[in-house]
C-alpha cells in the first residue's frame, strides 16, 4: 500500500519537482528532506497544483475533490485561524464544526486530542496568542488529531521542541501507525530527527530524488554531501572513519552502540 506519484511535477516560486516518480508507503513514519519538502506536502494536501499522476488506494486521483485530499491533515509552519477565535477551546470547536460531525462526542474528542499530544484540559481556556512557540505547535497538532485524518502531514512542525517532546511525539507517531494504521509524513531539515525516528525517507534535491529505508538512504553519504543535505554527525563520524582509516565501523543510531564499535576497532596497545 502506497501513494504513488508518477511523472510528477509541481512548482512554487523557485522551488520545483520535475517529472519524478515518488513512492510514499502507507502506515509508516516517513521523513522528507530537501528544499522541495513543503511543496510536496502541500501538493498531497491539495494546496498546490501539479502535473502527472497521483495514485492512492489503487485509484488515480483527480485534481479536485480527491480521496487523498480528504484523508490528509496538514499541520504547517504558520498557525492560521480566523480572527474571531481567541482560545484553544474556540479553535477546537471551530475545527469540529467544519467536520460536520455530531456535537455528542465533541467534548470528549477535544479532550482526547489535547491529551494525546501531552497537553492538559487547562489549555482549553488559554488564549492562543499567549501560548509559547512550542505550545502553539502542539495545539496545532492536537487540532489535526481531532480531525482524525488517515495521513498526517507535518510541515516543519518539529522545530524548537526539546528532546523530551521530540521523543514523546516519536512514540505518539509510532502508536498512531501501529494501533490506528495512520501514516505520518514529516517534512523537516533536521536530518538527525529523520535519521533517528523515521522508517522511510525521501530526499528531494534539485536534480534527483533519493528514497528508501531511512538507514540505507543515509548510508549514501556522498549523495547527501553532493546535494547539500545535512549529514547527521553520528553518520558523518562513521563515514570519515571508513573513508580515511578504512575501518568498517557500522552505521549506528545510538552513540552507545557507536562507542562499543569504536572500542572493538581501536588498538588499545597504541593508546596505552
Amino acid at each position: 500500500m502506497a501513494i504513488g506519484l508518477k511523472n510528477f511535477s509541481c512548482q512554487c516560486e523557485d522551488v520545483k519537482i520535475y517529472k519524478e516518480n515518488i513512492v510514499i508507503p502507507l502506515h509508516k513514519v516517513i521523513g522528507i528532506i530537501g528544499p522541495a519538502k513543503s511543496l510536496l506536502l502541500k501538493t498531497l494536501n491539495g494546496q498546490i497544483d501539479y502535473s502527472g499522476s497521483i495514485y492512492y488506494k489503487g485509484q488515480r486521483q483527480s485534481k479536485k475533490d480527491t480521496l487523498l485530499y480528504a484523508e490528509t491533515g496538514y499541520v504547517g509552519n504558520d498557525f492560521q485561524y480566523p480572527d474571531f477565535i481567541q482560545t484553544v477551546e474556540e479553535y477546537f470547536c471551530y475545527l469540529w464544526q467544519r467536520t460536520g460531525k455530531t456535537l455528542q462526542t465533541r467534548d470528549k474528542k477535544m479532550k482526547e486530542a489535547l491529551k494525546i499530544v501531552g497537553l492538559t484540559p487547562e489549555y482549553f481556556k488559554r488564549n492562543i496568542t499567549g501560548l509559547s512557540f512550542s505550545e502553539k505547535k502542539l495545539v496545532q497538532l492536537a487540532g489535526c488529531m481531532l480531525l482524525n485524518p488517515s495521513i498526517i502531514l507535518l510541515d516543519n512542525v518539529l522545530v524548537g521542541f526539546d528532546k523530551l517532546v521530540q521523543k514523546r511525539l516519536a512514540k505518539l507517531f509510532k502508536l498512531l501507525i501501529e494501533k490506528y494504521h495512520k501514516t505520518v509524513i514529516i517534512g523537516t531539515s533536521d536530518s538527525d530527527y529523520i535519521y533517528q525516528y523515521t522508517d522511510y525517507c525521501i530526499i528531494l534535491t534539485d536534480e534527483k530524488v533519493s528514497q528508501g529505508e531511512t538507514q540505507k538512504v543515509f548510508e549514501d553519504v556522498s549523495f547527501l554531501i553532493k546535494h547539500n543535505i545535512d549529514v547527521p554527525e553520528i553518520v558523518c563520524f562513521t563515514y570519515l572513519v571508513r573513508e580515511k582509516k578504512h575501518i568498517k565501523l557500522g552505521y549506528h543510531k545510538d552513540v552507545r552502540d557507536l562507542m562499543k564499535d569504536i572500542y572493538k576497532h581501536v588498538d588499545l596497545k597504541i593508546k596505552e
Binding site: E233, L240, V266, I270, K271
Partner: peptide
C-alpha cells in the same frame, strides 16, 4: 571515550578525533 581512557579531552572536531583514535592509519 574519555570514560574508557581512549581520549584525553573533549574534542569537537570529528577529523581530529578520528586521527586521535587511529593515529597510525
Amino acid at each position: 571515550l574519555q570514560f574508557y581512557n581512549l581520549i584525553d579531552e573533549i574534542d569537537l572536531d570529528i577529523e581530529s578525533m578520528v586521527d586521535d583514535l587511529w593515529p597510525l592509519d
